[in-house]
Design a protein around this nucleic acid. Structure first.
Lengths: 185, 185
DNA sequence: CCGAAGTGGAACATTGATGTTCCAACATGG
DNA sequence: CCATGTTGGAACATCAATGTTCCACTTCGG
């Protein structure tokens, strides 16, 4: 009965993890990164990578699954239903930022958009809709537009951090400030 | 003395234009589009494409030049030095949006970033700096951050338009509204 | 109308990525 | 210590993209 969740030894789990993490890093840097580059970045041979992920599509699927998992974590941790919607959004931004390179993959569509459209954007869209009802979020702005503005600024913030052009403690306040002001009624 | 600016017959100029335009369109859709796809989209043979642009790098350079030219046009047309900086920014957004797929290429870095950093972002950065001095733009926000927020939302607006998820007359007011509120002091 | 300019397609060589197979090395826990 | 699980690398076949050459066909201006 271990079909869905294969049991793996310590070594296998560790190697698998290293490969997926390297894939996230390299694909964020260059969405056309070759499997060879990813294997190098993971510190494993290309053969080993193919042992875990027979082809590129399976590796991308694993990255997608990782994304969904991390996204679910963030939503669970952020308690998006507490307080007024705009305040929840202010709390949510720094949490999302912890997704790091996954933000890049989501925003640039390396991971199939279905992920973002489904599991990914739904809680945020619901939060914005609640803000509309409560009156804490500008009614002139579509839910979709607000969601887009949030994602776009998260992506921007991460890209800035990643390239070392600013430090986290400088970026986060500006991110929260521009998101909050943009969506305020 | 026609070294820098080759004189071309009507036919050559037309074909060249068609290729560059198709390249912009296809590369915006998929930054890894093959030369064959681009040639097809331009309605010319792959051989003809190679006649105009011996290799991929030269085609990308031509796209870069096109980008600079269009960007220069926008800056010339927008009269960024008139009125207060925030008002100028409100006028500027719809103009930038006319860049269409070029926004995608700029934002996703298909065109070498040097273009954006140099000719591209300078006038906008100058506008924001003026806004800081005048007090019409939030002094808590870095010039770089404000510039990033503007580009990110322009990219978002174009992506939304391109995918037909909203009409221009719905998007533009929301774009201007969120940009303006975000940068207001 | 005719010659030059422009074009498309077939054919080819080259290259880099991909995926597979096989084997030698190695650690590691029983 | 040794059987098993795990790994890396070499070698190979395949494939798609790239860039080149050559030739036949249009077309369009003088």
């Amino acid at each position: 009965m271990t079909e869905a969740q294969e049991i793996e030894t310590g070594a296998r789990a560790r190697t698998r993890r290293a490969i997926v993490e390297a894939a996230v890093r390299e694909l964020a840097r260059d969405s056309a990164a070759s499997l060879g580059q990813i294997a190098d970045a993971a510190g494993v041979g290309r053969t080993t990578l193919h042992r875990y992920f027979p082809d590129r599509a399976e590796l991308l699927a694993a990255v997608g699954a990782e994304t969904v998992a991390r996204l679910t974590e963030v939503h669970a941790r952020a308690r998006v239903d507490e307080g007024d919607a705009r305040a929840a959004l202010r709390r949510l931004c720094p949490e999302y930022l912890l997704l790091g390179d996954l933000l890049t993959l989501l925003f640039t569509g390396v991971v199939p958009d279905a992920v973002l459209d489904g599991e990914g954007a739904a809680p945020l869209a619901a939060l914005v809709a609640r803000g509309h009802r409560e009156g804490s979020i500008d009614p002139e702005l579509d839910v979709e537009w607000v969601v887009g503005v949030v994602w776009a600024q998260l992506y921007l913030a991460w890209a800035t951090l990643r390239e070392g052009q600013a430090a986290r403690h400088d970026i986060v306040p500006m991110l929260v400030r521009t998101v909050d002001k943009a969506v305020a009624p």
